[in-house]
Design a protein around this nucleic acid. Structure first.
Lengths: 281, 281
DNA sequence: GCGACTGTAACGCTGCGTTATAGTAT
DNA sequence: TATACTATAACGCAGCGTTACAGTCG
């Protein structure tokens, strides 16, 4: 039978299902050293009883403590309570679980968005669709967005996002962006908009106090998918013509929703895929 | 107004709430490079439109993808579906959440154990307590544990644990260990035990098929806390004397439960704190 | 010309896994 | 002597943070 008080590092490792490197590391950082080191060869020798300490280390590790934290815990006497740290860790884990659940929400939303995109009609095709109520946050510029270029549009969007960032409204809650042309500007000869918006996830469970949210009503929308930035005026005109041709009644404001804005690394061009729509009755 | 198509790395970093190092890293690994690099100075210049790509990167990062994975996703065209990866990631997160919930169970059990320990009577004091039904796994040795030394006890325990490890019964489910003296050996002049056991968490939701579990019945136990290893015979004798003195009836087997076995790094001595008990009626 | 900015390069963090090279036990 | 074992040292992993030192912008 092997000597239970003089186990080589390999024997100790095998007995406890850890690697020798792990044991060497624990020795090095002062977490668990061998009971004896041969002064001639430097060989580490452990006793079987130390596997109990190793058990505890692994247990703490399982609970998510760092080696440094475990070192503190291990060296405590039995009387000093570890409860505080355990409860703290418990709270941390709760927070982590919550974060992961938020991740899942994000993923599910992306999946929905992806599925939605796939089933969308081709560019330029006009179609009817029912849309649920949507929450948005609006940012007003001091110029006509429809006449400005892509960079200014992006900049305005960035300012809005940064505002939301500053008031701690998590980015994960908003995704698609777009512009609104109010009804009163629809019938003028030249279209005008100074409002960009961000869509807010319907599942958002938290809003800062000082945020002003607008609702876009549910209903039937006449829609068209587009792929060129800064051609909103052209597309919108086509849409309005269709409204007139079919004899629909315009109800509310005109909306342009950016569905997808694709970064491409190979060429330096941005690709777009967005949808414009107008509520009718 | 700043040039929205020639943002320095600092300006870009500020606009998007990332650090310059992050942008440099993303450039280096080919995830997101500046649109222009001054060939003279090597200065990086970004356009505002690239913050959209950065948004996506951060969004993917939030969902727990690695930079390498994000790189793949970003370079995909809109037509190739990212659904597979999203769903895979979703499953990963579910598994992670499950793991964390197991962690919490472990922590809560440790907290219970800790609170229990604090309220325990002093060493040597005999007291009555009600104990719930317990599940244990037993390992039989071919020698009298009460006559063997600490190392052999630890070794037997290790063999049991390794057996459980091999049949994939997670370590987190068992905690306290102990020995049993069967009733038939209680009345002999010399105490005998060849069974050590591990307590199984009552919340364990999984058992391997080929495991044999024994139940220790609920009921009233006469108990005593002890602090010296290998003195079980002495303590047990005291306990049996108390039974006789008070006129209790022994019901079932004698149990020795190791409550705490404390590793101490400062001196090389192990410290113990265990409880022996016998069911009475 | 000064301060704010930018560049590259290198080390640090965690918890080991993975070589590489050299000495040791049996 | 063969071979299984052990030692130290160093690099790698992810995603940056953090120096340090030198050149550049307004």
């Amino acid at each position: 039978m092997m000597d239970l008080t003089k186990l080589s590092i390999g024997a100790m490792a095998k007995l406890n299902h850890v690697t020798e490197q792990t044991l060497r590391l624990y020795d090095k950082i002062g977490l668990l050293g061998p009971q004896h080191i041969d002064p001639q060869t430097g060989y580490r020798y452990y006793t079987i009883g130390q596997s109990m300490t190793l058990d505890m280390i692994l247990y703490y590790k399982h609970m998510g403590f760092s080696l440094e934290q475990i070192k503190e815990e291990i060296n405590k006497s039995i009387d000093s309570p570890m409860q505080i740290n355990l409860e703290k860790r418990n709270a941390e884990i709760s927070a982590e679980i919550k974060r992961l659940q938020m991740c899942q929400k994000s993923i599910e939303r992306m999946l929905r968005k992806s599925r939605k995109y796939i089933s969308l009609p081709r560019t330029g095709e006009i179609f009817l669709e029912y849309v649920k109520e949507r929450k948005i946050i609006i940012y007003r510029t001091d110029y006509n967005i429809l006449d400005s270029d892509y960079n200014h549009y992006q900049y305005a969007l960035r300012l809005l996002k940064n505002y939301l960032y500053e008031i701690n409204f998590p980015m994960i809650y908003f995704y698609n962006a777009g512009t609104i042309i109010r009804n009163k500007y629809l019938n003028t000869s030249s279209l005008f908009s100074n409002e960009i918006y961000l869509l807010i996830d319907e599942n958002a469970d938290y809003y800062p106090n000082d945020i002003s949210i607008e609702m876009i009503p549910q209903g039937t929308y006449l829609s068209m998918c587009c792929s060129r930035f800064n051609q909103e005026k052209v597309y919108a005109t086509m849409l309005l013509e269709e409204v007139r041709r079919k004899g629909y009644q315009i109800d509310g404001d005109y909306i342009c929703e950016v569905i997808s804005e694709l970064p491409k690394n190979d060429d330096q061009q941005q690709q777009f895929y967005y949808k414009i729509q107008i509520k009718i009755r």
